[in-house]
Amino acid sequence: MDIPRHWRLKKQRYALVGEVCGHCDTKVFPPRDICPACGEEAKTLYQFSGRGEVYSYTTVYEAPAGFEEGAPYTIAMVRLAEGPLVTAQLTDLEEKRVEIGMPVEMVTRKLRNATDERGMLVYGYKFRPVVAVP
């Protein structure tokens, strides 16, 4: 299903590639070509660090069709270090209690059920608690 649609989004899904505004330096994700801050054209690609913190979160128990295998799952809005908010699932939580303000980092995971009607796997970004560097 939707193979070209997912293929077109691979830079965003796998590498958090957005844009930077050449006029006011605002970082933009998801890419939208018009800077939301100053209204000028913003088409220069920009790779985000993948670091951020939890802005809000909740748990989905009754998953929409296509997401049942992951349920229940935690979904969040993450404030990226460079400014934008993104919507994504939290993963690798184990017993960790999620809190607003918790530092998280981007990882690549399966977004949907592994077994859709055409056997396609849709990968993309999720966020996990920041792994402490020894």
Partner: peptide, 13 residues
């Protein structure tokens, strides 16, 4: 659809 629903977001969530 590309940046919310595809991540499992629902209206209730």
């Amino acid at each position: 659809a590309d940046y919310e629903a595809e991540h499992g977001l629902t209206l209730t969530a």
